[in-house]
Design a protein around this nucleic acid. Sequence first.
DNA 1: ACTATAAAAATAATCGATTATCTGTCAAGG
DNA 2: CCTTGACAGATAATCGATTATTTTTATAGT
Lengths: 245, 245
Amino acid sequence: MSSTDDSASAPMTDEETASAGFADDGKNTIGSQLASRLREAIISGELEAGSKINLDKARRTFNVSLSPLREGLARLISDGLVEFQDNRGYRVAPISLANLEEITTLREELEVFALRESMRIGDVEWESNIMRSLHRLNRTDRDASRPETLELWEALHREFHLTLISGCGKPLLLHFCGLLLNLNDRYRRAFLIRTSGDRNVGQEHSEIAQGAVARDIEYATDKLRQHIHRTGTNLRNHLATKGIV
Amino acid sequence: MSSTDDSASAPMTDEETASAGFADDGKNTIGSQLASRLREAIISGELEAGSKINLDKARRTFNVSLSPLREGLARLISDGLVEFQDNRGYRVAPISLANLEEITTLREELEVFALRESMRIGDVEWESNIMRSLHRLNRTDRDASRPETLELWEALHREFHLTLISGCGKPLLLHFCGLLLNLNDRYRRAFLIRTSGDRNVGQEHSEIAQGAVARDIEYATDKLRQHIHRTGTNLRNHLATKGIV
DNA sequence: ACTATAAAAATAATCGATTATCTGTCAAGG
DNA sequence: CCTTGACAGATAATCGATTATTTTTATAGT
């Protein structure tokens, strides 16, 4: 919980926006910056799942000292992306079929619960945010050939799912869902070059969103559950193809 | 996830058991030891909720250098017991009525789900562990007048609840439940000098355990949910008494 | 008096070097 | 041959000092 996070913040053209005043928000200390860079490196698969993280090598790679490096790695432990053992250092959290299935199951439980709660107590602001996130997401194509497109889509997708459940008024629950989303994204970015042809993900998102703002609890939660489940199934098949147990 | 944890480990008389060989398990590095000590200090209320943690003062108090101190604090962030902000340091996570209610709600959702899963796929080993934990717990009195008794009971209680759901085969879920249990315990130790007179907690635990090993899903999950809910209600009243919002 | 600004103190973050621990290798003994 | 133990190299953990940032205090101007 807490800690200066970022990932899919808000608009902002790109850079530090050297214009108005000074937006102090995000990545300040070296440790924070490293956490972001490492998180991205792990989720994108740049750092191989299960591989050991040599501190000295990493120190040189990122041009930093040990203290902030450890600081950054420590944060990724909270995210479940890095594992640690005393005197034996850090390693990128491994991936497995069982892990993917657990993530999918828990997403079905927690995200659906959070959506239900959001529909129960969410306000108009929440509704509006959903429609905005949906629009942004659906206006962005996920082109496998261009990685930068992919990253943008991932960020917007994550944003959409989090916005959907942001009305639930439960910080801890949102935290858990955010973690699961993170973990799940790693699998998608590693194995899903394209979504399976029989799905229209854009429409799935639209249906969920519309059900949510219409407060049709049964409809919306059903659609969300199916959405999560399908993604899980797809990913499972891709994993199987690559022979991962 | 991961990281060398301890809290309510296993038997062990008390000390490091200077007898047989060398049990390398737990608290090795200074950072790990600190994490344990700090965790205990926070849960027990020794470190006041919401208070700032001055690094320099803490460094002198615990007779350590900054590196391991930060290391230890970083781990407690994962536990949700400490909050952090760039350039502004650490503070003990605050407590509030809303927070307690969320913890209770999530425990009802997650622990009950984990129990259901455990009953579905748990093996005989799991059943046996439950009976053992139950017996240990019920043989231990919770005497408010002696703090050391209290700590032992807390450890066994935590152990019981975790054992109950340990058959679910879902590491992430168990991790979440462990966090929630931690957070919840802080409230109990801070505000529940004695359990309310109209409860027989020992019997509640027995009923849950018996239902679990008998694989009576409806009965066991109902009892667990009620158990968690009652604890939440009790704590809420105590908080209200002390004027905490 | 009240705000705004600047200096000073307190505090957090980082660095480079040192110390402790682990891991693999190789030789001696069985 | 296989196991055991000592050594050496690699790696992680810790320290003390330095640098950067924030917070407080003091000062000047209105």
